[in-house]
Simulated scan of single mutants.
Amino acid sequence: MRDSFIGTGVALATPFTKTKEIDVEALKKLVHFQIDNGIDYIVVLGTTAESATLTKAEKKLAKDTIITENAGRLPLVLGLGGNDTKQLVEDIQNEDLEGFDALLSVTPFYNKPTQNGLYKHFEAVSKASPLPIILYNVPGRTGVNMSPVTVTRLANDFKNIIGIKEAAGDLVQAMQMIKDTPENFLVISGDDMITLPMVLAGGSGVISVMAEGFPKSFSQMVKFGLERNVEKAFNLHYKLMDGIDLIFKEGNPAGIKAVFELKKIATSEVRLPLVEASKDLKSELSHFIEQMK
């Protein structure tokens, strides 16, 4: 099962209509766009999906649509996290996990738990989950950084914790995790800009935002990196760099949704408190897309 998550995963966005409803047809198109262009697996209802703004009914609609369109072709990972451990355990126990191959669970946000608190939280998640778990460390969003020591403890103590999406943007921290965790533990980049250095250091791939808009180029870069074809990998990395900066310039997923609009996949609509990408950013992205052709 671990091998299913080596390579390029995408954090799938939720397309909206001009009236801010889920655009089911655009979501179907987005799923096929990933599959047809070499992505290895899909993450459903993560941060990029604007899941914090979706109702329970909308989350079910998104999940059902993605499962149906995927039709078993790629592994699916469900984002399921929270900052109330007891509630999260109940959510895992009550969630319909049919069609999913793993959970992606973010560190508790806002509470700022200690490292021991993080360990205890994921101990409870591990005991509750019938699926393998990929931890998600993203201190820029959550306000807490999970240390390599804590990650290593969890990796050694709980067999169903199979990896981490490491998005601290700290290559040294990522390398420490790669060095200290068990050999089959997956250290997955959650930062598009340092994906290739992490892969070359021994990482397992990426869960990407950029790859969702440019799946063929990004997944090929990761593939070359895993094969240690360094020259070809870096050629693609440097080609993608400016675009990576642009898609995060005004926040995620506003940037990547602007790419969808320019590529005629979906609208660039987001839900408040996020706002749509500016005209200036769309112009910059349009120029970048032309360069990528």
Rank of each mutant, 00 (worst) to 15 (best):
T114C: 12
M1S: 14
L27Y: 06
M210H: 10
D280Q: 14
P182H: 11
I22C: 08
T150E: 13
P197N: 06
I39V: 15
G251T: 08
E58K: 05
Y41H: 15
M198P: 07
S268Q: 09
T19Y: 00
Q87Y: 06
A49M: 11
K28C: 03
N70L: 04
L76F: 08
G203N: 07
A168Y: 02
L103W: 02
G7T: 05
F16R: 06
K179E: 15
P139V: 06
K279L: 15
G143H: 03
I42W: 01
I244Q: 03
N184L: 10
L78Y: 11
T195M: 01
F109C: 12
K239P: 00
L80C: 13
S105V: 13
N37D: 05
D180V: 02
M177Q: 10
V275Y: 12
S219F: 09
L88G: 04
G82I: 08
A258S: 11
P253L: 10
P132T: 07
E290N: 14
Y110C: 09
D101N: 15
T14H: 09
S189F: 03
V106C: 08
T142I: 00
K18F: 00
K179D: 14
N137D: 14
K59D: 05
L61D: 00
V222M: 05
K59T: 04
G225M: 09
P148F: 07
I134M: 15
N94T: 15
P215F: 05
K20V: 03
F288N: 08
L12G: 01
D157R: 12
E250D: 07
I66Q: 02
N116L: 14
V106N: 11
F234S: 03
